[in-house]
Design a protein around this nucleic acid. Structure first.
Lengths: 333, 333
DNA sequence: TTGAAAGCGCTAACAA
DNA sequence: TTGTTAGCGCTTTCAA
């Protein structure tokens, strides 16, 4: 790896001039030409580590997410990446596995590596950002809001839950259950609250189930729901993976939609059933990423305005197929 | 951000001693204690940028993949991550979108950031590694072998294609088509070659279709296959996303497996159909990642042995359900 | 416009 | 075992 000194020597200029050429500062055309030629010949690439050390600021941002295998987050990541790339930043993707300790570690690394900023999908509501905020580096929360006074990009989770439940109700289902994420996670609670607003208090005991935001969680909850004395004729799953789990289990029992109604908050990744049979409340994952990245870029650019929270809209894609006539009669009323 | 000098001053020792404490070199217990106390008090974290500049080596490795939204690669990433974490390395995930220019850029960044090494799933067979290899940093290829003399972790693509086709043949299907990736991509060609070995040359014209390794590609190819004068009664999809596309289209036409036989190379991500209906040749994505990361760690540790290529086995999970009796009669023989 | 020179924070000889 | 010191490669005053 050639250095700025070798280029300078070959070009017959000072190291400072070489630096200027590579940083867009004005340099006389002849010298610039000479520098570029020398750099080319030596296959010179500026050493980013040195630059970062000197400038105390790198052209890298971190995207810290709880589950890299969840398509919702990879889609969000694509949005972040596109904006960051265009602005000349690299994105490093950090997977916390929903573990606060890993999250802490990555935040510490971000500071320690002088990263320009962080976009964080908090693993829990108690994420400790004290040290990071104290470092003065910008951070934007996505997906879940934060207790800290920082920028955030979220969706209206309650609206999304409400929309999913409403779609099922309008399709003619009457006993609508809900499978949501862990008790204590804001997104899980809010989406379930939206469902509750629609179905009211009259649903049978046990129609609301807390589980993990994973495929297995959806399967387990669905199994329990089907084992109920009065099983539901429809179900709202409050995230994509739980919906997949629920649909898998229904398929194994021969109960594919619309036989049992299914509503999802968040999109069905790589679904192989006819998508028309499920009501999907699409979360704008990519858009969240784009918006968060733009906000972060503004902060990196020196924006010192008070923290903002942007609430994005989700979009209902109702099932094409209505509830079968059989659905209502099957009810034991 | 406190520096090593401030810690040294507070602890009443030299900066070198502070450095030693944080690098595990022997230091007298009293001084070590004093340093740790001072560091704690000042909330000191070593500046990795400075360390990297000085050591010319960071504790970060890059994982460069063509499609971060493909669960195959995220699963692989998890494997890499687990090994790297355990060894004290951070993993930065770089998405190339199958674009050679983005790939080049990330490789340049890896050098420029003094990263410890790279695990690369080449975007194409012509990936230019000259500059990277010249930098002397270790690189391990995954998924696709490389023309360069570098470590690689691959699967036997031909075996995988053969296994998928065989499973369908044994299940009783007779007109077995194949949807594979772009002509020119080694994995696509090899898996198709495996299929060809099983079905022989007697398949009708147009039973082998080249497409993109994406959902849309699978849909399009499946559409074309169904429009054939003599449509197939089964199909091998040579990657996960194309299989999803093919299954989606089949579902929309009311042709769910086992009515039409489906074999996949690579696993069905988040499938919502009964998995028993599809023959899956599972690719050991996570294991590939783990193996590649271990090899990279060895190289980083100073291993100078000649380049090795590890070939991992794929595993057939045959469909539980056999071909329906209707399948054979439907053939126009 | 250009160059000299002083660091950014850390590590690793080397000497004590 | 400890401290002194010279850089790692770059950017950025400051002076010319």
């Amino acid at each position: 790896m050639a250095t700025i000194y070798e280029v300078a020597e070959l070009a017959g200029v000072s190291p400072a001039t070489v630096s200027r050429v590579f940083n867009g500062t004005r340099v006389s055309p002849e010298r610039e030409e000479a520098v570029r030629e020398a750099a080319e010949k030596l296959n010179f690439t500026p050493n980013r580590t040195a630059r970062t050390l000197r400038r105390r600021n790198s052209e890298v941002i971190a995207l810290v997410i709880p589950d890299i295998e969840n398509p919702y987050f990879t889609e969000l990541a694509r949005g972040v990446e596109d904006v960051a790339q265009a602005a000349g930043y690299s994105v490093v993707l950090c997977n916390t596995d929903e573990r606060p300790d890993k999250e802490q570690r990555y935040l510490a690394v971000a500071v320690s590596e002088n990263m320009a900023g962080v976009i964080l999908a908090p693993a829990s509501d108690q994420t400790d950002l004290d040290a990071f905020v104290a470092s003065g580096r910008p951070v934007v929360a996505v997906d879940r809001a934060s207790a800290y006074d920082i920028d955030a990009v979220v969706v209206s989770n309650r609206d999304a839950g409400r929309a999913a439940a409403s779609a099922l109700l309008e399709a003619g289902y009457r006993r609508i259950a809900c499978i949501t994420g862990p008790d204590g996670i804001e997104t899980a609670l809010e989406r379930a609250a939206g469902w509750r607003e629609v179905v009211g208090e009259r649903m049978p005991e046990g129609y609301l189930r807390y589980s993990t935001f994973r495929v297995e969680g959806g399967r387990e909850a669905m199994t329990e729901l089907l084992a109920l004395p009065e099983p539901p004729d429809a179900v709202v799953a409050t995230n994509n993976l739980m919906a997949v789990g629920a649909l898998q289990l229904l398929a194994e029992r021969g109960l594919t939609p619309p036989e049992v109604g299914v509503g999802v908050v968040g999109g069905l990744p790589f679904t192989t059933i006819s998508p028309a049979a499920v009501s999907v409340v699409r979360l704008p994952a990519r858009h969240i990423g784009v918006t968060a990245a733009r906000m972060l870029m503004e902060r990196i650019g020196g924006d010192r305005e008070p923290a903002r929270t942007v609430v994005l809209r989700s979009e209902l894609i109702p099932a094409a197929a209505p509830a079968p006539a059989a659905a209502a009669p099957a009810a034991t009323e």
